[in-house]
């Protein structure tokens, strides 16, 4: 008797639980899961947008991708871009946060100043940067010339394209990372800093290494993951500033060209899956590796 009652009670709890989870599951399915499955389907075909018939081609799209010089170039370009933006974005963000955290009266001003680029539209800002970096009209080159150096063609020299765009990327993400680090800094109990001073941490480096840096671990992990993802998603600067000329395509830009300019839907779907896989592996890898160190 009691077993039967227990059984029905439990199944009722399970049903109720499922009911509560259902809206979230539905949303996830509609927004993420079904599109990814459709994408996987597309990636195995030669479907192009508007075409009347299509063929199943197996993994040929993926094989083609790794033989496609444009895609391979976009991979290296994105890797270079990320290699600049991730460390610079994270450590400069931390540095700025430490400086701003020490201000009292002017803190609000600096926070706003550094956060403004985050709120600005990158497409519009890219146009501004185009002007700033212009070889003959731009103030940046005017300054370089004033110091007696030759003007630098930031957006003309193919070797400088990716580093220049990385610089803009750092400028854009700095404020966001700063705000995250500021939140992390505020959460560190004052007692710990005082305990470190009593324990003989005489100089700021000691206090930073003993208290601040380890206590920022969870924040740093989050900042590194979000910065990596936005670095791999770089698109607007390329679309506005270079349009991929002189071999400056990035992953998302190459993908955009294939999918929307050339209408190679099947191939673009395969590139998208590769992109997703890279982002997924990176974030899972970082989370698992750093998780062990940052949680106490």
């Amino acid at each position: 008797m009691t077993i039967a009652i227990g059984h029905t009670a439990r199944s009722r709890i399970v049903t109720r639980g499922l009911l509560f989870a259902l809206p979230a599951i539905l949303l996830m399915a509609v927004i993420y899961i079904i599109p990814v499955i459709v994408l996987m389907g597309f990636s195995l075909t030669d479907y192009s947008l508007g075409a009347l018939n299509w063929r199943f081609v197996g993994l040929q799209n993926f094989v083609a991708a790794f033989k496609d010089p444009v895609f391979l170039r976009s991979l290296t370009n994105t890797a270079l871009y990320a290699a600049i933006v991730i460390p610079a974005g994270v450590f400069l963000g931390l540095g700025v946060a430490l400086l701003v955290h020490g201000r009292k009266a002017s803190r609000g001003f600096w926070e706003t100043a550094y956060f403004l680029p985050v709120t600005a539209t990158l497409v519009a800002m890219a146009t501004v940067w185009q002007f700033l970096l212009h070889p003959s009209l731009g103030p940046v080159n005017a300054a370089i010339k004033w110091f007696g150096f030759d003007p630098v063609s930031f957006l003309g020299n193919p070797a400088l394209l990716i580093p220049t765009m990385a610089l803009i990327g750092v400028w854009q993400i700095l404020g966001f990372n700063m705000v995250l680090f500021l939140a992390g800094l505020t959460a560190i109990p004052q007692d710990l800093h005082e305990a470190a001073r009593m324990d003989g941490a005489r100089n700021p480096i000691d206090r930073f290494l003993t208290v601040t840096w380890p206590m920022l671990g969870p924040t740093t992990l989050f900042v590194v993951v979000t910065t990596s993802i936005s670095a791999f998603k770089v698109f607007e600067t390329v679309a506005v500033l270079t349009k991929g000329r002189s071999g400056s395509e990035t992953l998302l830009y190459a993908l955009y060209l294939e999918g929307f300019e050339y209408s190679n839907t099947g191939y673009a779907a395969a590139l998208t899956l590769i992109f997703l896989a890279i982002v997924l592996i990176l974030s899972i890898g970082q989370t698992v590796r750093m998780d062990r160190k940052v949680h106490y």
Partner: peptide
């Protein structure tokens, strides 16, 4: 609060 370093 004891102020022990939580990561150590």
């Amino acid at each position: 609060s004891y102020a022990l370093y939580p990561h150590m």
